[in-house]
Simulated scan of single mutants.
Amino acid sequence: MRAVRCEGSGGPEVLVWGEAPDPRPGPAELLVEVVSAGVNRADLLQRQGHYPPPPGASELLGLECAGTVVEVGADVTGWQVGDPCVALLAGGGYAERVAVPAGQVLPPPVGTDLVSAGGLVEVAATVVSNFDHARLVAGQTVLVHGGAGGVGSFALQYAKALGCRVLTTAGTADKRDYCRGLGADEAFDYAEDWSAAVREAAPDGVDVVLDVMGAKYLEPNVGVLAADGHLLVIGMQGGRRGELDLGALLSRRGSVSALALRSRPSAQKAAICARVREEVWPMLSSGDVRLAHETRIDMPEATRAHTLLESGEHHGKIVLVVPR
């Protein structure tokens, strides 16, 4: 088969479209012919040499894909060759074919084409698992950092659909307008004093913060938490190491969680995928949650996709499409 390989670690130029070994499914796996694969920040980190795949996972990039089933493992039931699907991966999505544990494979949402579906399941699984951990409920206030990105575009809509008040940050006026169009109640410029703006908008604090920045935002994120609030760290774009004022956290009875998805055992991922199918797919089919703005790029041009994601100039989701 053909796939995007990393010839060493470094910038986007190390990505090369060429031949790779064909994957073979195990007894509890499905073999999927890939139609599209979502591009995620974790892919950039792996390409740079900072985020190796878990033991036993494919060395190829790609944490989500959509396609059709072409082979069914001996122990798998409920799937047939030719079924359309989306899959949550530990790696291997930037390829024509990928083998996936059956519990991490879902039918696509009704009404969603397979190209768009390739960029759905990783963000949905990330957001749902984090908000479930924080026990997010209607009436609470949520702050989503990077609301114009792939995760942010989904997270603010999902929180809104659950009945929450949603605040977000984004870097340009048009991105903030985009976030408001998706349902954000207020959007703030992260280049300015966003924490002061959040405290003014939510004097009693924010119940849940979904953060992609890590160290850079650690102190101000704790500073905007409400009593019994939750800070959920899902990215480290602003660094790995920061100082935490435990007194400030204690005074709020707050919690800080860092919940990686990729390294979870397959059984946990299967449970999260089941939650996504039960909770999120109906929201997409009904229109309560809309697909993010989408940029489609042919998979052999993965270099261009990574360059675009790193630039910060896009909004929504970037999806790689396998040429046929």
Rank of each mutant, 00 (worst) to 15 (best):
residue 4 V to C: 09
residue 4 V to I: 15
residue 4 V to L: 05
residue 5 R to P: 14
residue 6 C to M: 15
residue 6 C to H: 07
residue 12 P to F: 03
residue 12 P to V: 09
residue 13 E to P: 06
residue 17 W to T: 02
residue 19 E to C: 05
residue 20 A to H: 04
residue 23 P to F: 06
residue 25 P to M: 04
residue 26 G to S: 14
residue 30 L to I: 10
residue 35 V to I: 14
residue 36 S to R: 09
residue 42 A to D: 02
residue 43 D to Y: 01
residue 47 R to C: 01
residue 49 G to Q: 10
residue 50 H to W: 13
residue 50 H to D: 15
residue 52 P to F: 08
residue 55 P to K: 12
residue 59 E to Q: 12
residue 62 G to R: 05
residue 62 G to K: 04
residue 63 L to W: 08
residue 66 A to P: 12
residue 68 T to I: 07
residue 74 A to L: 10
residue 74 A to H: 14
residue 84 P to L: 07
residue 94 Y to W: 10
residue 95 A to R: 00
residue 96 E to I: 09
residue 96 E to R: 12
residue 109 P to C: 06
residue 112 T to V: 15
residue 114 L to M: 03
residue 117 A to C: 00
residue 118 G to N: 02
residue 119 G to Y: 00
residue 119 G to N: 09
residue 120 L to Y: 08
residue 123 V to Q: 14
residue 126 T to D: 01
residue 126 T to G: 06
residue 130 N to G: 11
residue 131 F to P: 00
residue 137 V to N: 03
residue 138 A to S: 08
residue 143 L to S: 00
residue 144 V to F: 03
residue 147 G to L: 02
residue 155 A to T: 07
residue 158 Y to Q: 02
residue 159 A to D: 12
residue 162 L to F: 08
residue 169 T to L: 02
residue 171 G to K: 00
residue 175 K to H: 07
residue 176 R to P: 05
residue 188 F to A: 00
residue 201 A to T: 05
residue 202 A to M: 10
residue 204 D to S: 13
residue 205 G to A: 08
residue 206 V to T: 02
residue 206 V to G: 03
residue 207 D to V: 01
residue 209 V to R: 07
residue 219 E to P: 00
residue 222 V to K: 01
residue 227 A to R: 15
residue 232 L to M: 03
residue 232 L to H: 07
residue 236 M to E: 15
residue 236 M to W: 13
residue 237 Q to N: 13
residue 239 G to N: 04
residue 245 D to E: 05
residue 249 L to V: 03
residue 254 G to K: 11
residue 265 P to A: 04
residue 275 R to S: 10
residue 276 V to Q: 10
residue 276 V to M: 05
residue 277 R to I: 07
residue 287 G to F: 12
residue 287 G to Y: 03
residue 287 G to L: 13
residue 288 D to K: 14
residue 289 V to K: 01
residue 296 R to P: 07
residue 297 I to H: 05
residue 299 M to V: 11
residue 301 E to A: 14
residue 301 E to H: 14
residue 302 A to W: 10
residue 304 R to L: 14
residue 306 H to T: 07
residue 308 L to R: 02
residue 317 K to C: 11
residue 319 V to H: 08
residue 319 V to S: 10
residue 320 L to W: 08
residue 322 V to G: 12
residue 323 P to C: 12
residue 323 P to M: 08
residue 324 R to I: 06
